[in-house]
């Protein structure tokens, strides 16, 4: 897919941006250091703003900063592992 190029020559995919997310970890992933792994795998800045971890569920509000392409890839990676990833604006779609 062609990437849109801005007048200054930078492609939109590589523009730095921040995304605010809520992550929900299922029980089997609660003890795994996912945020650390994410930082190793993708050139992104991770910033945890809130977290609540019990035996049954882990909830983390996370800010990711970096290129749009890397943020999208990181979200895909987390979802593949079984983490529910939502924008902070969850329920954007209402009935």
């Amino acid at each position: 897919m062609a990437t849109k190029t801005k007048p200054n020559g930078k492609s939109e995919k590589n523009q730095p941006q921040s995304t605010r997310l809520w992550l929900m970890f299922p029980p089997k992933l609660i003890t795994r250091p996912i945020v650390w792994e994410l930082g190793q795998k993708f050139p992104l800045v991770t910033n945890v703003r809130q977290a609540s971890v019990t035996d049954e569920i882990g909830l983390v509000s996370l800010e990711l900063s970096g290129s749009r392409g890397d943020i999208k890839a990181a979200i895909k990676w987390m979802e593949k592992l079984g983490i529910k990833v939502e924008p902070v604006e969850i329920n954007v779609i209402e009935s």
Binding site: I75, V85, E86, P87, V88, E89, I90, V92, I93
Partner: peptide, 10 residues
């Protein structure tokens, strides 16, 4: 649904 939700947030 999740993709639509995220796009709209963006």
């Amino acid at each position: 649904y999740d993709e639509v939700n995220r796009l709209c947030a963006e």
